[in-house]
Design a protein around this nucleic acid. Sequence first.
DNA 1: GCTATATACCTTGAACTACGAGGTATATTA
DNA 2: TAATATACCTCGTAGTTCAAGGTATATAGC
Lengths: 112, 112
Amino acid sequence: MAQSNPPFMSGVPELLLLRLLQQQEMYGYDLVRAIRRVTGEAISLGEGVIYPILHSLERNGSLKSKRKPVGGRTRVYYSLTRKGRDRLDQLQNDWRRIQGGITTALETPSNA
Amino acid sequence: MAQSNPPFMSGVPELLLLRLLQQQEMYGYDLVRAIRRVTGEAISLGEGVIYPILHSLERNGSLKSKRKPVGGRTRVYYSLTRKGRDRLDQLQNDWRRIQGGITTALETPSNA
DNA sequence: GCTATATACCTTGAACTACGAGGTATATTA
DNA sequence: TAATATACCTCGTAGTTCAAGGTATATAGC
């Protein structure tokens, strides 16, 4: 049936999201700016990336949400569940492995 | 018109390829195994990834190739051109930036 | 001699992610 | 009153990676 594993480097947007939400509850629009900020402008993910991930993480029980009316508008604040914390750990390990592998490859001296 | 930039983390397979070819000329089948090896098994890219990249890099002048018959079979050895070295530098910088951004995000203490 | 595995090249269709443009609505600033 | 910022969202598509195939020769095991 040709089912495919996720691409080896995916999961980074999800990782960043979960990491930020581990530190404090946040809402989508804010996460967009926070990701730019905490990565030193290196990574910029639009709302078209953020919102779908938030929704799917909530659907699978990694996040819980809470609506807060703030000055006429409504914000949807997300925070981690137990499952979300586990998922964060897993993604963090995955990332370290990938990152380490690439670093090794790049650091190997030309005359090896 | 909706023309899209490449995903922010793409270019890693290309980076690994160019990095290996900077060290020595290699052929496709060998690169597949080399990438697994130099990344400590963290990254495994199949031939379906490697060959198309080699072809497109050759087409755009980043690689040059040379066919060598070896014991009945033919190997296509690739090596970097000037343009390929420039491309490697650029991808290496891109990667360092991304990698640094993510590291910063992950290292920020929970009570920040 | 036969079969399976390894080498070596390649392409293709589907799966998946990320991008960008859009749409709604309220609040604030000019 | 008009433009910008906040805040939510979806959708089409572009670009990448994946897995599975196909061809062909060489080698190793039985």
